[in-house]
Amino acid sequence: MKGTSPFVFGVLIVLGLIVFPFYWMLVTATTPPDQLMIETPTLVPSFTRLGVFVEVFSAVPIASWLTNSFIVAAGTTVLCLILSVLPAYALSRFRFRGKAMLALGLFVTQMLPEAMLLVPLYAVFRSLELLDTLTGLIIANAAFGAPIVTWILKGAFDAIPQEVEEAARIDGCSRFDIVMGVALPLVAPTLAATAVIAFFHGWNEYLFAQTFINAADLRPASVGIAGLVGEYAVPIHLVMATGIIYTLPSIVFYLIAQRYVVSGLTAGSVKG
């Protein structure tokens, strides 16, 4: 069945639906503000007005928002990877009592609504003085990110032939050395993909940030931008420019790592 036209037509419709909101963000951001508040919309972006993406930095505290988002995202990534590499290897290579329980537990974490933990975590963080800190957000995010990362890495370790490790084992390397020196380099692409997943889990997270962060200078971009929705203090074209700057990294990195992200996730959900 080679590309018959009805299929191509259908594909184009789907792609149109998918791309349009992003396109509309760009159109809105680059249209002169006096032409936005009229009822005949401008339909194409004006590339001479890309200056809004610079202008927006002085109109909105986006530099501070993005810095905070970056800190949360990077911290979430590091913590997720530290927590996940060894358990993923253990799930892949060892047989041990409680293994099925662990697998089930990781699955259950994906069923838990984050909102359920808001109340008790708020109480715990309050007593540990983690409210209004980026560290608190990192700690909360990693608890939801680490199980996914573990699961995807386990799939990658499964694909490494045992013989590769046996040689190192005979040479007297400890198990820890084997994971770090032999197995981990072999799953580097998947490791990178899980890093991307964990990073954007932290970058996109809104609920915990909205609840636990009060200080304006600690606000990550998700909270800052959510505060702009439906407000008219900041002109809409600048709001959209902010939204684009916040969204672009997610999409660019996702497209770069896409192959591994998708195969990791589908392996997890189709076979898992």
Partner: peptide
């Protein structure tokens, strides 16, 4: 096409809410 299809899923929910709230705006 396959790569493009998946991008909404990579976009932050906050950004999705932002653009849709503007697209649903009563006047403009």
């Amino acid at each position: 096409a396959r790569a493009l299809v998946t991008i909404p899923w990579a976009a932050p929910s906050v950004a999705v809410a932002l653009i849709f709230s503007w697209m649903f705006n009563a006047q403009y």
